[in-house]
């Protein structure tokens, strides 16, 4: 049908526009990170040579500066750096002299698993609780949940994690408190992250529920006697899909922030702990690589959120009255 093609074309235009914006943002980002790297204290050639275990003198530094192109203009250096980046080369760590990509790659799966499992648990906790509180506004359960979220907003994550360690690792030692690898290593970190992150989600979902249950179309569905089993998951939650998608898509930074803290509390060998270690050691190529990766993930997730939102809500591609005539 012609109208479907029309919708497809609109979609294509929208996608192209958003992709262009994404590319531009990522370009700005590389500029910014490269400039910071350039401004960072210390001479890169000297630092790199120290990474090889040498104690370089001035001649040696000058020689390698020339060899590695570090004496060229800022712009030239940026261009060659960008070319390397396009090939997937982020340079070598000052500390271990191994490629940054390798260093990050060996740790990323653990962090990803941690992020995904805590996100899933958070979602599973907060959707039913948020809906319950919102549907029974001002009831006992709503008030108890409100109190719990106030406490949850104020509890320092690292303290909560330490209390969990103390309770389930020291006093009642059923879970390991340090390191990573086995499934049991994930239990306490995931629990700590989900407990704190759920608070935001519960509040959001509650307020959406309160807002959307008053809409005329939900009232109309009730007046048609739609069963509760269909009404809440389908009619109510469907209209909340766009706002919920938005929080889900933009919640990555806060989950990642929580991961940094948790990985350091539990000495969990993932990206968060590695990142902090490299900041201690002033291992600039790794800091650069990590920030690039983190920023790119955030921007791409925002992009995906925007696009899926466009697809989830038919009202955005309004084509009024295409049924007329």
């Amino acid at each position: 049908m012609a109208s479907i093609d029309h919708r497809g074309l609109d979609m294509f235009r929208y996608l192209m526009g958003r992709l262009g914006m994404l590319a531009f943002t990522l370009f700005l980002l590389t500029m910014f990170v490269f400039t910071l790297m350039h401004m960072a204290p210390g001479d890169p050639a000297a630092l790199m040579l120290q990474g090889f275990g040498a104690t370089p003198d001035e001649n040696m530094i000058a020689f390698y500066q020339n060899k590695w192109g570090l004496d060229q203009s800022f712009l030239m250096q940026y261009v060659s750096w960008l070319m390397e980046l396009a090939k997937g080369n982020l340079g070598n760590s000052y500390l271990t002299n191994k490629p940054v990509v390798e260093e990050i790659g060996s740790r990323i799966s653990m962090t990803l698993l941690l992020l995904i499992s805590s996100f899933t648990l958070t979602f599973l906790i907060s959707v039913p609780l948020g809906l319950m509180a919102g549907l029974r506004e001002k009831s006992l359960i709503d008030r108890i949940l409100y109190g719990a979220t106030v406490l949850g907003l104020s509890v320092p994550l690292y303290w909560l994690a330490i209390l969990l360690m103390l309770s389930f690792g020291v006093i009642w030692p059923i879970f390991p408190i340090i390191g990573g690898g086995s499934v049991s290593h994930y239990v306490l970190p995931v629990a700590a992250i989900s407990m704190v992150q759920s608070v935001y989600f519960i509040r959001m979902i509650r307020s959406f529920t309160v807002e959307y249950k008053k809409t005329p179309y939900l009232e109309a569905a009730i007046s048609r006697g739609i069963k509760r089993r269909m009404l809440y998951p389908s009619y109510l939650f469907r209209s909340m899909l766009v706002p919920v998608l938005t929080i889900v898509g933009t919640s990555f930074p806060s989950f990642f922030g929580a991961t940094i803290i948790i990985e350091n509390v539990f000495s969990f060998p993932g990206i968060g702990k590695y990142m902090l270690d490299t900041i201690y050691n002033r291992d600039y190529p790794v800091i650069q690589g990590c920030s690039l990766l983190l920023a790119a993930t955030i921007f791409i997730l925002n992009f995906v959120t925007d696009v899926s939102y466009y697809m989830a809500d038919p009202r955005i591609h309004l084509e009024k009255q295409r049924w007329e005539n």
């Binding site: 005329p216 179309y217 939900l218 109309a220 569905a221 009730i222 007046s223 048609r224 006697g225 739609i226 069963k227 509760r228 389908s234 009619y235 469907r238 209209s239 899909l241 989830a312 809500d313 038919p314 009202r315």
Partner: peptide
């Protein structure tokens, strides 16, 4: 009431566009 509404008492409102869920296809509703 759930068994009465829609089944034994039908209702039509002034604003049809507000009575249909905007994000669910007609057939599904």
């Amino acid at each position: 009431w759930q068994r009465v509404r829609g089944k034994r008492i039908g209702v039509i409102n002034q604003h049809p566009e507000q009575s249909l869920h905007p994000a669910i296809p007609i057939g599904r509703q």
